[in-house]
């Protein structure tokens, strides 16, 4: 796996969520994602950025353009130092929500990408990493 480009951005306000979406859109378009796939990865990043901001009390997004053999992709990592998720399996189910929302954030984001990885420690924070291939 080859790292082509890397950058990171803060997620400290709801404006940062909008900025994160725009950055992901730009990178995805540059990598050659089709419109539908651009929309999917941008939507997934919006969900995860909001999770990090709302529940994680702010965090960062790391964005990486990667290459594996002859395919290129986008890898996004969302990190927060929030309360963490006690039951990840439960959190991935549709309809699970701690914020009175639709509860589609985590499970929904997972369906929009090719790879989804989550690690969470109660009291320490949560890291979600997603990959979508062009």
């Amino acid at each position: 796996m080859l790292l082509l480009r890397r950058d990171s951005f803060p997620l400290q306000s709801s404006d940062d969520i909008v900025k994160a979406r725009q950055i992901v859109r730009t990178w995805a378009a540059e990598l050659g994602f089709k419109l539908v796939d651009q929309t999917k990865i941008v939507t997934a990043s919006s969900e995860l950025a909001r999770n990090a901001y709302d529940h994680g009390k702010g965090g960062i997004m790391i964005i990486e353009a990667i290459e594996d053999g002859d395919r290129k992709g986008l890898r996004l990592t969302f990190q927060d130092q929030g309360p963490g998720i006690p039951d990840i399996e439960q959190a991935l189910k549709d309809g699970y929500s701690t914020s009175g929302g639709l509860g589609l954030g985590l499970g929904g984001a997972k369906r929009l990408v090719n790879e989804f990885h989550i690690e969470s420690t109660v009291g320490k924070g949560t890291t979600v990493r997603i990959v979508k291939w062009v």
């Binding site: 539908v36 929309t39 939507t43 929904g108 369906r111 929009l112």
Partner: peptide
């Protein structure tokens, strides 16, 4: 609503 947005929403479960 744009087609790409509609497809993504369905996938998301909305």
């Amino acid at each position: 609503m744009q087609p790409a947005v509609a497809i993504t929403m369905v996938e998301l479960g909305l």
